[in-house]
């Protein structure tokens, strides 16, 4: 029997992970609800002054997205690591880099994309206007895949390691700093009338470079974990 082509294997990985995510809908909802709760707590902490909320809104929503992304990452490879699927993927006659990319894409579709869709609702809570909401969505659309890509390296490195969740945050959150700066900065720049083009371009550049390097680094880390 001829083995399937690389692209077929890749899409099989994506479909399998999406299906498995759909079967565990509660897990997806947990991440989403966490995102909403964290963002909703801030007005309770800092007061409901509309001008203040408008100025901190983009940053708060972005930080909440960062934390939600970290929370979801712990599950990216752990199930496959526990039941041995990961070893099979590593042994498969395909580039582990591409298969890892498939898992990251499925992970982003299941956990990152819902954040992008819910974000405007949270933006309304922070009194952001329609333009700002559009820019917020665009920045999240470009930024959250980068978070999934960078985070996948950390998730692979901390597989089966003591204190995985907290360690993952310590490893990955500093690396998220550029995405946070330009993601929240895009919304602020557009609110200040400067235009968000430069920020969004930089976010796009981060996404492209992460797309090139992160799956490869993830594959190296996965091999370290399963060997």
């Amino acid at each position: 029997m001829k083995p399937p082509r690389l692209l077929d294997a890749w899409s099989a990985v994506v479909r399998r992970d999406l299906l498995s995510a759909l079967r565990h809908r509660a897990d997806l909802l947990t991440t989403l609800i966490f995102f909403v709760i964290v963002a909703s707590l801030f007005p309770l902490g800092v007061g409901s002054d509309a001008a203040l909320l408008r100025s901190i809104g983009p940053g708060v929503i972005w930080v909440a997205a960062l934390l939600a992304s970290i929370l979801a990452l712990a599950r990216l490879f752990s199930g496959d690591y526990a039941d041995g699927t990961l070893e099979q993927l590593a042994l498969a006659p395909y580039s582990l880099t591409f298969l890892a990319l498939g898992k990251i894409v499925a992970h982003w579709l299941a956990t990152g994309l819902p954040l992008v869709i819910v974000a405007p609702l949270l933006g309304v809570q922070f009194d952001l206007n329609a333009d700002a909401l559009l820019v917020l969505m665009a920045s999240l659309l470009l930024g959250t895949p980068t978070l999934s890509l960078i985070g996948a390296v950390g998730a692979a490195l901390t597989l089966g390691v003591r204190g995985g969740g907290a360690l993952l945050s310590l490893l990955i959150l500093p690396l998220y700093v550029p995405v946070l700066i330009f993601g929240a900065g895009a919304v602020e720049a557009s609110a200040a009338g400067l235009g968000a083009g430069a920020h969004l371009s930089l976010l796009g550049a981060f996404l492209l470079s992460a797309l090139v390097f992160a799956p490869w680094a993830t594959a190296v880390s996965l091999r370290i974990a399963v060997e």
């Binding site: 490893l171 500093p174 690396l175 680094a217 370290i224 974990a225």
Partner: peptide
């Protein structure tokens, strides 16, 4: 494994240090 995992995160960090610096 600690050596290899540490090496990956050190190298990822080294690539990111200039990006972080200019972003900040």
């Amino acid at each position: 494994r600690a050596d290899k995992a540490g090496a990956v995160i050190a190298l990822v960090g080294a690539v990111n240090v200039p990006i972080i610096y200019f972003s900040v």
